[in-house]
Simulated scan of single mutants.
Amino acid sequence: MIHEVDEVLKGLLNGGALAGSGVEIAFDAPTREWAARRNAPAVDAYLYDIREDVGRRQRGTVPVRDDQGVVRTRRQPPRWFRLAYLVTAWTKRPEDEHRLLSAVLATLLPHETLAPGQLTGSLANLGLTVPLTVAGPHTEARSLADVWSALGGELKPSLDVVITVPFPAYPEYDAGPPVTEGAGVRVRAVDGTLDDNAERRHRPGHLATGGAAQ
């Protein structure tokens, strides 16, 4: 699932304001050693934090239907996880890096939500809309200063991009066979005999009519 999010983010960054720019999109940790090997403009999206969005957790089960709409299995609702990316620009001059970051903002800001058609693989098959935030306030994720310290690099301008995605929760449970027949209602008249007309009126597919049992 995580690699599919990488593909989605890479596809977004290769479009919009960065389309046709030839800027490389990387997912490496931006360490000093990695930065020293750069010889061409690049935008790096380093996945630095993964944690569950507990506010989205649901209880119970959800039905899984086949192509005919029949419930075949039931499973637990998906668990949602926040994938936080540290997005940085790498060129020879700070001014050019700022232009790249501006292009990243212009590219990602229109995508507050990602429809299933914009996703790939098993992530798209879930049929759920995925939220995306850019440069939002830090809440549960580690501070970016801590991230740079752990990487051993110097603090530089960056964008915090968070994509919150569903991850299927297993196992699945077999559902019972579908109900194909309804229950009939048999009504007795005051003399104890069965009122067949009343029974038909209460069967599924028959429109109930007025009148009292005799």
Rank of each mutant, 00 (worst) to 15 (best):
1 M>H: 06
1 M>C: 09
4 E>T: 11
5 V>S: 04
10 K>F: 06
12 L>V: 00
12 L>S: 01
13 L>W: 03
15 G>K: 06
15 G>I: 04
17 A>H: 07
20 G>Q: 04
20 G>P: 10
26 A>G: 11
29 A>S: 03
30 P>Y: 01
31 T>I: 06
32 R>W: 02
34 W>G: 10
35 A>T: 12
36 A>S: 14
37 R>Q: 15
37 R>P: 09
37 R>Y: 07
38 R>L: 07
39 N>D: 14
41 P>N: 02
42 A>C: 07
43 V>T: 00
50 I>G: 03
52 E>S: 03
54 V>Q: 12
55 G>F: 03
57 R>A: 09
59 R>V: 08
60 G>H: 04
60 G>F: 05
61 T>F: 11
67 D>Q: 13
71 V>F: 08
73 T>R: 15
73 T>C: 10
77 P>W: 04
77 P>T: 00
80 W>F: 14
80 W>D: 10
81 F>Q: 11
82 R>N: 12
82 R>I: 09
82 R>A: 13
83 L>A: 07
86 L>E: 05
87 V>Q: 09
91 T>N: 11
92 K>P: 01
94 P>E: 02
98 H>P: 06
99 R>M: 10
101 L>F: 05
102 S>K: 04
102 S>V: 04
105 L>A: 13
106 A>H: 12
107 T>H: 02
108 L>M: 05
109 L>F: 13
110 P>K: 05
110 P>S: 05
111 H>M: 06
112 E>T: 14
113 T>D: 15
117 G>E: 09
119 L>I: 01
119 L>Y: 03
119 L>A: 01
120 T>V: 15
120 T>G: 06
121 G>L: 06
123 L>E: 00
124 A>S: 02
128 L>R: 10
128 L>Y: 02
131 P>Q: 00
133 T>I: 06
140 E>R: 14
141 A>H: 11
141 A>D: 14
142 R>V: 13
143 S>C: 01
150 A>T: 08
153 G>R: 01
154 E>G: 08
154 E>R: 07
156 K>R: 14
159 L>E: 03
161 V>H: 00
163 I>R: 02
165 V>C: 05
166 P>M: 03
168 P>V: 09
175 A>P: 05
177 P>V: 13
185 V>N: 12
185 V>K: 14
190 V>M: 12
192 G>C: 07
197 N>D: 15
198 A>K: 07
200 R>G: 11
201 R>Y: 12
201 R>L: 14
201 R>P: 08
205 G>M: 07
207 L>Q: 12
209 T>W: 13
209 T>G: 15
214 Q>D: 13
